[in-house]
Design a protein around this nucleic acid. Structure first.
Lengths: 146, 146
DNA sequence: TGAGAGAGTTGGGTAATCCAACCGAGGAGG
DNA sequence: CCTCCTCGGTTGGATTACCCAACTCTCTCA
């Protein structure tokens, strides 16, 4: 793991695992239910060598698990671990931002919540359940510079 | 803007703007209140040439605005636009994931919500306000492959 | 006159990425 | 049993991105 200078910060630590090119697109496909190398290659557009490297780092980081699904010939697929499934809010937040600020026209992908509405994520305080934004948040501790 | 193969998707569109190395760390600093080139360089650890390139990209994409704050000598700082401020849920979700899965020990940075609790983000349905996860979401539309 | 501060550029080397082609184990069809 | 196909990757070579230190330019302050 490369030592990174700059602020001590969980965002930087997270990006060291999932911030390389194509990683989040692979995880998007995994959250959509895909598991196979060729599906990842086709659906993300990543070249096969880079995809192989990314899958190795994501498996090493515990975000994906490599599972054999046939014996002969030996074939493997990639399934999300708990920490991988925990990335859903990150990808949903990114998708919502992209829908609003990076995509023209209708969102290419849409989700339904069990309440029946088309799903849009909102960030709330886990403790009190009300919305969180710059008007009601303040930093109480900030990581130093290494 | 480079044409990217793979699925038509707002996550990919978002990453085309903010997914390059250092971009999200610059935006983290901006959301922490920093505005100056040298602060970004020091607090992120990015080299100055790459930082200059990233700031140009982010300004061109409308995420940051370059503002002159003195006349002689002419000096500029970078302030978040509305679309930049809208990235807070993305960075908070990333920080929460990093705290839980990529950082050992105490989170380096912490926030307080106005309710008095230490802030942790939760993703809820904007329509009904209840939590959203893999048990109560389903895709109703999925972008095709270009 | 000389030392900084602030916001960048420049040059040169290293590392990451892209692309097309290839490989090896087995399966399916003839 | 010969050939072609699928899946999950590797390999080689060219291109692009990134890193680092040093430098520039303008203006201020002592």
């Amino acid at each position: 793991m490369t030592t990174v200078t700059g602020r001590d910060c969980s965002i930087a630590n997270a990006l060291a695992i999932i911030g390389e090119r194509w990683s989040l697109l692979v995880l998007r496909e995994a959250l959509l239910g895909f598991r196979r190398f060729d599906q990842f290659a086709q659906n993300t557009g990543a070249s096969r060598d880079i995809l192989a490297a990314r899958l190795r780092t994501l498996v090493a980081a515990g975000v994906l698990r490599r599972e054999q699904y046939t014996d002969r010939p030996p074939r493997y697929e990639y399934v999300l671990t708990e920490s991988g499934r925990a990335l859903r809010p990150v990808l949903m937040a990114l998708m919502e931002w992209g829908d609003n600020y990076a995509t023209d026209g209708e969102p290419p992908t849409a989700w339904a919540h069990e309440c029946g509405a088309e799903f849009h994520p909102e960030m709330v305080c886990a403790s009190c359940g009300t919305t969180a934004d710059e008007t009601n948040l303040q930093t109480i501790r900030m990581g130093g510079i290494s």
